[in-house]
């Protein structure tokens, strides 16, 4: 396959960026999207050009690093996958593919397609954890929790913090990311001690980072590689109102 790839090139966080067009030849349909970028970068290096900076790590869909906005959608045209799980067979010979970084004021571009997702880390630092000592691995079924709640907590826990929710939201809202962590820990017995303060602190940090508000378009869940449900956002809202109404943090 021969493709035209239009990529956002930006030298550093201070400089202005622009879209640059590249021709990529002899692309195998079995390559992953990132492997196609590897081929393009090899070509650029051999010509003495600066290779395109992009985030990637595990390349098996569990680390959440590969943040590319491909042809107008987070992680490209397929749902339920990350960029590394997108294969070139999803495109046609002769296609033009537009690749941009996540766009959000809370995710500043560092270089080319690499954005700083430190805002997510700071939200987790604000309350996305359990402080009580949970000990070693417990015996199976030793913790009193229903199967329904355990499954829902696990579904929420599958969030890999990739930021596709922010990237695809028209308001660059981080609601789905924050809601997933709040839901996971609010459902688990270990999370109860800090339940109210957690939602208050994480939501406050989300605001401080400059993410937008949720308009309930549902775009985040559609683009989420782990298909995390809108149920979590409703749960976060309930947790937030309950915490604000009843917590002793004045």
């Amino acid at each position: 396959m021969n493709l035209t790839v239009k990529v956002w090139r930006q030298k550093n966080s201070k400089s202005e960026g622009k879209m640059v067009s590249y021709n990529v030849k002899d692309v195998s349909p079995d390559m992953s999207f990132l492997e196609m970028f590897d081929v393009l970068n090899e070509d650029l290096i051999s010509k003495g050009d600066e290779p395109i900076a992009f985030d990637h790590d595990c390349r098996e869909g569990i680390c959440g690093m590969c943040s590319m906005y491909i042809n107008g959608r987070a992680h490209g045209p397929k749902t339920g996958i990350t960029t590394c799980q997108l294969h070139m067979r999803s495109f046609k010979d002769g296609d033009t593919i537009v690749v941009e970084p996540w766009r959000a004021s809370a995710f500043p571009v560092i270089k080319d397609l690499v954005v700083d997702r430190g805002a997510f880390d700071r939200i987790i630092n604000a309350g996305g954890f359990v402080s009580v000592n949970t000990g070693g691995v417990p015996d199976a079924n030793a913790i009193p929790i229903s199967k329904i709640d355990a499954d829902a907590a696990f579904d929420a826990a599958t969030c890999i913090g990739c930021g596709a929710c922010v990237a695809s939201c028209k308001n660059a809202s981080a609601s789905l990311f924050v809601a997933a962590k709040i839901t996971q820990l609010a459902l688990l017995p270990q999370g109860q001690v800090e339940r109210a303060s957690r939602v208050e602190k994480m939501v406050a940090q989300m605001e401080a980072e400059g993410f937008g508000a949720c308009t309930n378009t549902g775009a985040c869940s559609v683009e989420c590689p782990k298909e995390i449900s809108q149920d979590t956002i409703a749960k976060m809202n309930r947790e937030y109102y309950a915490a604000k109404a009843s917590s002793k943090n004045l």
Binding site: N71, G72, P77, V98, E100, A104, A172, S173, A219, V222
Partner: peptide, 24 residues
């Protein structure tokens, strides 16, 4: 506030693939 959260938009965006026109 929402506009401020994304000062620079996408050059190419296809929101109709993931959400309804009414909601956006």
């Amino acid at each position: 506030k929402n506009k401020k959260a994304r000062p620079q938009g996408y050059a190419y965006n296809k929101p109709s693939e993931n959400s309804s026109w009414f909601s956006r």
